[in-house]
Amino acid sequence: MSTIKLQETQTGTWNRVKNTVARRTEGRAVVLLILVIVVIAMQQPIVFNAYGVSLARVALVGMVALGLTLVVLQGELDLSVGSTLALTGVVVATIPDLGLGIIVGLITGLVIGALNAFLIVIVGVNSFIATLGTLFALRGLAFVLSDGRPVRVTDIDSALAFGRQLLGPLTPRVLVFILLFIALHFFISRMRAGREFYAVGGNRQAAIDAGIPVKLRLFTAFMLCGFVAALAGVINTLELTAADPTAGSSVLLASFAAVIIGGNLLNGGRGSLVGTMIGAFALGLMQVGLTFAGTPREVQDVLIGIILLVAITTEPNNLRALSGRFQRLTQRKANASA
């Protein structure tokens, strides 16, 4: 009897391990990160010595991607994060008082997130359409405020102090990125409101029936996403000591790719910030490596777009659906020939 119980215990433990592994969603991000590291080590090893540049790019892409993940987990999209980053930077640079500019910039991100949520949750506009509209509106507003040119920060000394290294290659941008990841991961995994994001994305009607305040959770996700994008814009402006109205145009694609490669399901209900973090490291390092190799930004966007398409098409649900259609087609051909 003891032997049988031991075997049952071992079987149960093994099944739990398999289920845990099956639920993990970061596999593709890990594979991509390994490939990127190997290629960089062979072609551009200097990237590993340029800690400041590499970590800065990873942090910028990662911050936007972390905020975007909160929205994707609920089955929605926010295409305006890049424009939010750019507009926030312009707001910070155009206000002479740097401290006030940072506060106004962060509030701007919250307002943009609330506006997106209002259009989607209250008005009922599809999130793709709503945030596509705000993307162009915010980008246009950034160009109007800046007159289409980079805007220098008035208090350059304070901005330069913010960009100095604190510990080894760690700058305030990287430290903020790490703290942001810890805070959002705790919120998603440990707090009830954060865990309900998965329920909203997994089955919205069931979440409503269970008494989850779905509208409030959607508003929370979009406002956090806007706030995080604004925070990225503030930090980017401080480190560059200037705001560029075109900033964020490439960040949107890279951050969105990091979210999808990290295993976050577009329909919502599945994913993790850990996967997003790994995806951000892979995409950020790849961009730095391509830049060091002299690759034009347009070509970089093409490569990231290809990686994004591969990530979407190799998503397990899509592969199962494709396999099912292929089997049905094969079966119909077999029946017809018979």
Rank of each mutant, 00 (worst) to 15 (best):
A137D: 05
L166W: 09
D78E: 06
A142S: 11
V92M: 03
S249N: 15
I120R: 01
F186P: 01
A232R: 03
G233N: 02
G289N: 06
I112S: 05
L141F: 04
N318V: 04
I182C: 07
Q7G: 02
L55E: 02
G248W: 02
T291W: 00
A183W: 02
G275P: 06
A50F: 11
L179I: 07
R28Q: 15
L290R: 05
G289F: 04
D157Q: 09
T314F: 10
V234H: 01
V153C: 14
N236V: 10
E76C: 00
A65W: 12
A29H: 07
S80H: 08
L138H: 04
L35Y: 08
G148L: 05
C225L: 02
F162P: 00
R325A: 03
I37P: 01
L106K: 03
A282E: 09
G294T: 11
E298I: 15
L110E: 04
T69K: 07
A336I: 05
Q43W: 09
F227M: 03
L224G: 00
L216C: 05
M63K: 07
A130V: 09
V71R: 05
R332T: 07
L308M: 08
S323C: 00
G289R: 07
G271R: 13
L329D: 14
L60G: 09
G27K: 11
S337E: 05
E76G: 04
R173S: 09
N318C: 04
V81S: 01
L216F: 14
L216W: 14
R297H: 14
R173N: 12
F326T: 11
T25R: 14
L70D: 11
C225W: 00
V302D: 01
A41T: 15
T84N: 05
L285I: 12
A293R: 06
T94E: 09
I103K: 01
V58Q: 07
V153E: 09
P172G: 03
L329R: 12
L309G: 14
I102H: 02
L119C: 12
R328N: 10
A334C: 03
G289E: 03
R270Y: 07
G262C: 03
V176K: 05
G105V: 02
A183H: 01
F181W: 13
A161V: 04
T313V: 09
D155P: 12
V176Y: 08
L166I: 15
F292K: 10
G269N: 08
L115R: 12
S272P: 11
D301N: 15
V111W: 07
F136K: 13
L32A: 12
A282Q: 09
G133Q: 13
G82E: 09
G324R: 06
L77Y: 14
M223F: 07
G211L: 13
L66A: 08
G294A: 06
N317R: 13
G201N: 09
A230Y: 04
I156K: 06
S2D: 14
G294R: 09
R325Q: 02
A56D: 12
